[in-house]
Nucleic acid binder design. Structure first.
Length: 604
RNA sequence: GCGCUCGUAGCUCAGUUGGAUAGAGCGUUAGUUUCCUAAACUAAAGGUCACAGGUUCGAAUCCUGUCGGGCGUACCA
């Protein structure tokens, strides 16, 4: 089902074609001010410049050709040449019934589904996830959910850091401290010892190992040998590696589940997965003359990148000691995704600091011609599209990157625990009579939802200041406000039952929609715009377009709720009001749960 | 040094790609409850869109420069 704004755009385009012979895309936006109507077209202003015509006269010509009386009232020309459009209540009412019949409430499917690989989250094994992983994980998940909603074939890839020197270091440390024997024993009795219980220890081990690595040359040397051993498949070292990897993955899965992020073990393709492909990556690039040696390292020099000294900036794919880098792994991953996963598009969700790396990476693979699957190298298949989606940092109240008092990264688990704890105390205060299990459910939904919603509601590209107080506030654009609006609607259903009103039956029987009260009409117009909001959110991968739509919806619902009794309405209009409630609840639920992965609750 | 990015109300942030008198929330002030969850609603006050030029019918948005913050810039990811 097409959003109103798209139908209007098409009509405007046609009218311009007829009036001027110009074939231009329509410029239609939501009106900047309610007094100008619902939508406005600014085409006349833009065209007048090109055609050296008077914009108001041009607007006149356009609206005489404009066939839109099935949707809008008579178009008005205002100001310098704006065409203002006001939706007809009949059109809104009819659309309300249409979205009621649509399980996706007007969110459109794409005409050409693509295979899209989304690379996100990417934590490191042997370490707990921290705030630094929050944004990639949840923004990446939201992007996947939106693409899936649009009908694309989405392949999630969790590029975890499970290889490299830091692991050799840790693995050797286990032997050095004779911890491995302990592990072996425990690992045999898995039931009594879950690998994830090991993670907090692993982190301390990691810290100590790092200290030794930096200060003890012998330890450092041994660590490097362990990397080589792992590389060559040494059974003992491999065992240590596997144990830590399993433990970490279990920990990650727990967090993803809590966060409502859809990432399973099947989506994991860590650095280790690509390890065996790395020599070929380097050799193939050498063969075609793109990779050359420089200061002992194997590098590529994509055009347009400079060092501090103004020299060509290298993209290093093999260090002078022979080791590979993340650049090498990323190259191997692109090949795998293009050739094996058949990606039409690859999306990377990382923080903005990695911008340069991805610009260089993309330049290199384009030059190497790796974006066309090998089986199509004679031509035919088109280049896979590469996209780097960036985001800003999470800052503390002091405006600096969020850290604990001791200067460490804040653990994601602890952050979520705190949010849930705070939500719990609010529930205790507001609704002490609820069962404890329900309080827990509410606290989890609200606490975790608040953290996610706060992130989503900020512009993805800018930094934001993390504040429990703000994200858990009941006023404003927050998860609790959205969840509260939802819970109130659900409460109407329950109250109706108590009063002996069969709301389900009345809803099924609704044939006519009454939008006579301003609050009803405003809410209805917002409801039919869900598809429009979805389209703009997915176009730029900006979740904040969705949250601001949902917030406006909830605000309009609250105004309606205050102004218009539902259960006590006259029998004639009650079904119509129930429909407004029902559609609001479904839209909030669809947006929150399907697209943002935030739980709604029946009661709070 | 060079590159990227940001600077919008006291605070936290939007601003749909160049449109009309720049919008929300918090906070402040003033109201609303015999009524479906007041975790709500209604309204008011609050702005040199960092600064200075330029482009044009029109600029928070585009171009140039200045000031200020953040990030990146050859073997970490």
């Amino acid at each position: 089902m097409k959003p109103a704004i798209e139908i209007i755009s098409e009509r405007i385009s046609d009218a311009i074609q007829k009036a001027t012979g110009q074939n231009v895309p329509a410029i239609v936006t939501a009106a900047t001010d309610a007094k100008f109507g619902d939508y406005q077209s600014n085409n006349a202003l833009a065209l007048a410049k090109q055609l050296k015509a008077n914009p108001r006269q041009l607007a006149e010509k356009i609206i005489t050709e404009l066939k839109i009386d099935d949707i809008c009232q008579k178009p008005e020309i205002a100001g310098a040449g704006f065409i203002n459009l006001r939706l007809k209540p009949e059109f809104v009412a009819e659309n309300l019934l249409k979205i009621n019949a649509d399980k996706d409430l007007g969110a459109e499917k794409t005409e050409k589904p693509q295979t899209v690989v989304v690379d996100f989250s990417g934590p490191n094994i042997a370490k707990q996830m921290h705030v630094g992983h929050l944004r990639s994980t949840i923004i990446g998940d939201c992007i996947c959910r939106m693409l899936e909603q649009a009908g694309h074939n989405v392949i999630r890839q969790n590029h975890i850091g499970d290889w490299g020197t830091q692991f050799g270091m840790l693995s050797y440390y286990l032997d050095y401290k004779e911890i491995d024997a302990f592990l072996h024993e425990r690992y045999q009795k898995r039931k009594a010892f879950r690998p994830k219980d090991f993670i907090p220890d692993a982190e301390n081990f990691y810290r100590e190992a790092k200290k030794l690595f930096d200060n003890d040359p012998e330890f450092a040397e041994k660590s490097r040998q362990y990397v080589v051993k792992l590389h060559s498949g040494d059974k003992h070292v491999k065992f240590n590696w596997q144990f830590i990897t399993d433990a970490s993955n279990e920990e990650f899965r727990n967090l993803y589940e809590r966060l409502g992020v859809r990432l399973s073990s099947g989506d994991t393709r860590g650095e280790s997965f690509y390890n065996k492909m790395l020599p070929d990556v380097v050799n193939d690039l050498k063969k075609v003359g793109l990779a050359v040696e420089s200061d002992g390292a194997i590098c590529l020099f994509p055009e347009g990148f400079k060092t501090k000294e103004g020299e060509p900036l290298p993209f290093i794919i093999q260090k002078s000691d022979g080791a590979f880098l993340y650049a090498t792994t990323d190259l191997a991953a692109i090949r795998y995704r293009v050739n094996e996963l058949k990606a039409d598009e690859i999306i990377y969700v990382t923080d903005a600091r990695q911008k340069l790396h991805f610009e260089m990476l993309f330049a290199v693979v384009k030059k190497a011609g790796w974006l066309v699957p090998r089986s199509f190298s004679e031509g035919g298949a088109k280049n896979a599209k590469l996209v780097h989606i960036t985001f800003g940092s999470v800052l503390g109240e002091d405006g600096k990157p969020l850290k604990t008092r001791s200067g460490e990264n804040v653990k994601l688990k602890e952050l979520l625990d705190e949010a849930v704890k705070r939500a719990k105390s609010v529930v205790e205060e507001k609704n002490p009579e609820l069962k404890n299990s329900e309080k827990e459910t509410i606290a989890n939904a609200v606490g975790i939802g608040a953290v996610k919603y706060a992130d989503y509601s900020n512009n993805r590209t800018s930094d934001y200041i993390f504040s429990f107080d703000k994200m858990l506030a009941m006023d404003g654009n927050t998860a609790p406000y959205m969840q509260y609006a939802y819970a109130r609607i659900k409460s109407i259903g329950r109250k109706g039952e108590e009063k002996g009103i069969d709301t389900v039956k009345e809803l099924k029987g609704v044939k006519e929609v009454y939008l006579n009260e301003p609050a009803e009409f405003e809410l209805a117009k917002q409801l039919i715009r869900y598809g429009e909001a979805f389209n703009s959110a997915i176009a730029d991968f900006k979740p904040n377009f969705l949250t601001s739509y949902l917030y406006e919806l909830a605000a309009k619902f609250s105004a309606f709720y205050n102004a218009c009794p539902v259960l006590d309405a006259e029998p004639k209009i009650r079904p119509s009001r129930l429909l407004l409630c029902e559609l609001t609840a479904r839209t909030i639920q669809h947006g929150l749960e399907n697209l943002l992965g935030i739980k709604t609750i029946e009661r709070m």
